[in-house]
């Protein structure tokens, strides 16, 4: 055995704990879930093994009206949260990047909500959004809105309530933007100043192109995160996360219900694979479009 082989073996030995863990706890379950998606499988008993049914689960999904309602709800949620989250986080990051008194305090305040555990945050919002006693409706009353929304019980307002709640936790995204903003070369701003650029034009022509890789990263993470949104909806919304008239019944919650409430692991696996395909497709589209708007410093 030559030195190169020895080094290879040593390297493999060092990464083997991760490799073994990945294979056992990720690769094998992922592979199995693909197989289960073509099976009728309840995952409740060893006496009831998976039975192969071909595309049966996928066909059934196409005719499942609740599945389509969840798809529509998830698209609606993502279409609101994704752009609003990106814009809100970017705006906050740009403001926090300026040299202002108490900068680190403001940064901490913005970041703190993302440290609050999801369950605690959900409970907090449950009270904030209460029709009668919530601080949000109290504030709306104060500014003259006499009939504020029933956030959690009106199907027209339940989704905006979820969006509001999601925007509260953009601290992580803000931090990533801040890191990107601090990498923007000073001389570009100086050059823009010499050219007489206004602050808005500096943001448009200098800041945004320079941090476009960071925006792209946040966009991809946002696509994945919003399509998989689960915890807060499950906790805060009535009817076990489905919301009034299933108005906030999101894809991941229906997937969970099928797997663990209705005991249909095969059906849930098919849903999981469709979700993976949707995320892959959207990520591919984002990656393809990035050639036109993402600028890397090295190029």
């Amino acid at each position: 055995m030559n030195g190169e082989h020895k080094n290879l073996l040593k390297g493999l030995a060092f990464i083997s704990p991760w490799m073994i863990g990945f294979c056992l706890f990720m690769a094998v379950p992922i592979g199995l879930s693909l197989y289960f998606s073509f099976c009728d499988f309840s995952n409740t008993s060893r006496a009831l093994p998976p039975v192969y049914i071909g595309l049966g689960n996928y066909r059934e999904l196409m005719g499942d009206e609740i599945f389509w309602q969840c798809v529509r709800n998830t698209i609606y949620y993502a279409a609101l949260v994704l752009p609003l989250g990106l814009i809100f986080a970017l705006g906050a990051a740009i403001l926090l990047n300026g040299k202002i008194f108490g900068q680190s305090v403001y940064r901490t305040i913005i970041f703190l909500p993302s440290l609050v555990p999801a369950v605690a945050a959900a409970m907090l919002w449950l009270w904030l959004l209460n029709d009668q006693l919530g601080l949000i409706n109290l504030a709306l009353h104060k500014i003259g809105i006499s009939d504020p929304p029933s956030w959690l019980s009106d199907p027209n307002w339940s989704m905006p309530a979820l969006v509001l709640m999601s925007l509260w936790g953009v601290g992580n995204t803000v931090v990533i933007y801040l890191a990107g903003l601090q990498d923007v070369p000073r001389e570009l701003y100086e050059a823009a100043d010499i050219d007489g650029a206004t602050p808005a034009r500096k943001i448009w022509h200098v800041t945004l192109p320079c941090i476009s890789p960071v925006i792209f990263f946040n966009l991809i993470m946002g696509i994945i995160g919003t399509l998989q949104a689960f915890t807060q909806m499950k906790l805060i919304m009535s009817n076990d996360g489905q919301g009034p008239q299933r108005s906030t019944y999101l894809y991941a919650v229906y997937l969970y219900d099928n797997a663990f409430k209705y005991m249909r692991m095969g059906y849930a696996s098919a849903m999981a694979w469709l979700l993976l395909l949707a995320i892959l497709l959207l990520t591919a589209i984002a990656a393809w479009s990035s050639k036109k708007w993402v600028h890397y410093g090295g190029k």
Partner: peptide, 17 residues
């Protein structure tokens, strides 16, 4: 029965609204 429970809960919301 879990499906029935969910369906009835949603029906009740619509009914009372």
């Amino acid at each position: 029965l879990p499906n029935v429970g969910d369906e009835l809960a949603n029906f009740m919301t619509e009914l009372m609204q």
